[in-house]
């Protein structure tokens, strides 16, 4: 700190330093976006009101599994309330609500307030950003498509008298449980994010997601009921039915209420439809984010 004799002007050294240490780099940045995204999706660190829908739907989604496990423990192996196969279809109404409420949190405001250049000024690219957001939403959706089924699985194993025997009986179902849960979560998250990325405001994004699922479901239900050949188109207007068909194709096990039953369509077609749905969603995201100026 020096003062020149002929003037009273001084620049004080307040001790600010540039950060010169090691940086976490691209991987760290992606991890941070995933972590923050997961917190946003679950309403962590937000007020109580933003927790109602994510935690409400998660609890409702786990409730049937919890009840089934409780009955098995208390009463024994008398009724089969839920199978691994029909569980996700059974709680299917919760998935659009969860995605409609939470997916907009991840992408809409970043686009609306034009903060993406701030992300891209760090060592991450557009693909990294989208992938991180997608991972965050997929992980959150797994709470509905995988977690309850795992609870069901754990209940069946732990409630059995012969633990190892039960494990041996049930363990064969694990690939199907994980496979189905992951496919559902990833495809639904991609679809949800793609829709949200096109909306200007969070409320519109939520409305658009709900519209796609509600209208798809209603049209599917109408076509299924009317029949006359239309039931074979019915599953393909409803994303959840397409995914159920894919699950059946890969892992087997029908669901009575699903429009896939009775549609009479070869199961691989559902796999193709899922691929088209996923491809369209990812392409939408790619195009949407390519257009963002940095």
């Amino acid at each position: 700190m020096s003062t020149s004799p002929d003037s009273a002007s001084t620049i004080y050294d307040l001790g600010y330093r540039r950060y010169e240490g090691p940086r976490l780099g691209r991987r760290g940045a992606i991890g941070a976006i995933v972590g923050a995204g997961l917190r946003a999706t679950l309403g962590l660190g937000r007020g109580g009101r933003s927790k109602i829908i994510p935690w409400g739907t998660l609890v409702l989604g786990l409730l049937p599994a919890g009840v089934a496990v409780a009955i098995r423990v208390l009463v024994g192996d008398i009724v089969e309330l839920y199978s691994y196969e029909n569980y996700v279809w059974g709680i299917g109404a919760l998935l659009p609500i969860f995605i409609a409420a939470q997916a907009p949190e991840l992408v809409v405001n970043d686009l609306r307030h034009r903060v993406l250049p701030l992300y891209f000024s760090r060592p991450i690219g557009r693909a990294d950003y989208v992938a991180a957001k997608l991972a965050a939403l997929s992980l959150a959706v797994l709470g509905l498509t995988l977690l309850p089924v795992l609870v069901l699985f754990a209940g069946r194993v732990l409630a059995a008298e012969d633990l190892l025997g039960a494990l041996g009986d049930e363990i064969g179902a694990l690939p199907a449980i994980f496979g189905s849960g992951l496919i559902h979560a990833f495809v639904l998250a991609s679809l949800g994010l793609a829709i949200c990325s096109l909306a200007g405001r969070r409320a519109y994004a939520a409305g658009a997601v709900l519209a796609v699922f509600l209208i798809g479901g209603v049209i599917s239900g109408t076509l299924q009921e009317v029949g006359g050949g239309l039931e074979s188109i019915a599953p393909f207007t409803n994303p959840l039915a397409i995914l159920d068909g894919t699950r059946q194709w890969l892992f087997g096990g029908g669901v009575a209420e699903s429009p896939v039953t009775g549609a009479g369509v070869a199961l691989p077609i559902y796999g193709l439809a899922t691929a088209v749905l996923l491809g369209a969603s990812l392409a939408t995201l790619a195009v949407r984010y390519r257009g963002v100026s940095t």
Binding site: I215, I219, T222, V226
Partner: peptide, 14 residues
């Protein structure tokens, strides 16, 4: 069914 379930129940409120 289309008019009631789709038209009145979904399209109208949306």
């Amino acid at each position: 069914r289309l008019a009631a379930d789709f038209g009145l129940a979904v399209l109208l409120p949306l």
